[in-house]
């Protein structure tokens, strides 16, 4: 299979959906003439024109709200946030207008909108630009959230998100844009359902549950652990909401030990929810307490050494695995 970058995979997904459905348009800061702040929309303006690839001023609340309004009358907007840290300026549109409309209108107005862009800490961007927003958005019923970690997942999930009739957040990763991986040939339609996790590596002794930026470090940790004769299974959630609980339970029932490695902060983070679900459903299957590796609970420092100390890492993950494996 050909290998392409995560960035190009997203670009292909956008181009294919724009080509397929004239109601789809892309709107955001620098998406058109600049070809995207991270070049995800490279070439789309030339191909689809300024009617459908639309540069906006720096007005996140305004253009996110425009997307919701356009979706109410039948268009299928893709709204790019230059980073999800900036989506916080549009929080009201994303959590109040997009997901509530269906209920508030008694089922009359669904909002088929995709909000996408990089999410999570990148590299030395400081506290305001390093937010991992998945745990915030996961608290709002009506939203769906996916977190692709590979080029293949990025393409397949984004295409599915655009076709979904509900508001979907596609949380990409700046650190992954240049990563490469196998993706089906361009002639072959690639759709990956929301709410379906994927085993990225099989193992016997422990399940590492991860998503987005923590997938590569989970795979690195699993490889290192193999040398110490601990066989780790790596389960990539791919979607935060809906959550593939059956896949989680199946893996845990097999390994009886779990570490959740998440890119957000520990307090009310994604891992807390997953821990609750596992102990609630299959408490008897657990041979050890569930461990979590996450960010430290502090605003992100700029200093590189301190930033690394805040972030989850393969080393922290290996230590957590060893602790619950009593190794």
């Amino acid at each position: 299979m050909r290998e392409i970058t995560y960035r190009l995979a997203l670009n292909e997904a956008l181009a294919e959906e724009l080509e397929r459905d004239p109601n789809v348009f892309l709107m955001g800061e620098e998406v058109a003439q600049y070809n995207g702040a991270y070049k995800v929309s490279q070439g789309l303006l030339d191909r689809f024109g300024p009617q459908r690839i639309i540069d906006t001023p720096i007005s996140e609340n305004g253009f996110a709200g425009m997307g919701v309004g356009a979706a109410m009358v039948g268009l299928r907007p893709i709204i790019e946030f230059m980073t999800f840290s900036f989506s916080l300026v549009a929080f009201d549109q994303v959590v109040n207008n997009a997901p509530n409309m269906l209920t508030m209108s008694g089922g009359q107005f669904n909002i088929p909108i995709t909000f996408r862009g990089p999410n999570g800490p990148a590299h030395q961007l400081g506290a305001t630009h390093s937010h991992a927003t998945e745990c915030l958005y996961a608290n709002f019923p009506g939203l769906k959230i996916c977190t692709p970690a590979t080029p293949r997942d990025a393409k397949g999930l984004l295409k599915t998100a655009v076709r979904d009739d509900n508001p979907v957040l596609v949380l990409e990763s700046e650190l992954l844009y240049s990563s490469k991986g196998p993706v089906e040939p361009i002639e072959q339609e690639l759709l990956i359902p929301l709410g379906q996790a994927e085993l990225k590596r099989e193992g016997r002794d422990v399940t590492i549950i991860c998503y987005a930026q923590t997938v590569p470090l989970a795979l690195a940790a699993a490889e290192a652990l193999e040398e110490e004769e601990i066989s780790a299974e790596v389960l990539d959630l791919r979607s935060i909401k809906p959550l593939d609980l059956p896949a989680i339970l199946t893996s845990v029932a097999k390994t009886h030990r779990v570490v959740v490695v998440e890119q957000d902060r520990p307090y009310c983070g994604i891992g807390a929810e997953i821990c609750f679900r596992i102990q609630n459903d299959i408490f008897d299957e657990l041979d050890a307490p569930i461990a979590r590796v996450s960010q430290e609970d502090v605003p992100m420092p700029y200093n590189e050494r301190l930033e690394q100390a805040v972030l989850p890492s393969a080393e922290k993950l290996i230590a957590a695995v060893k602790k619950i494996c009593y190794a």
């Binding site: 305004g62 253009f63 709200g65 425009m66 356009a70």
Partner: peptide, 12 residues
């Protein structure tokens, strides 16, 4: 909060 929604409808 609905004023941008109105703009989106007009955009459509």
């Amino acid at each position: 909060a609905h004023v941008p929604l109105g703009v989106g409808m007009a955009f459509a």
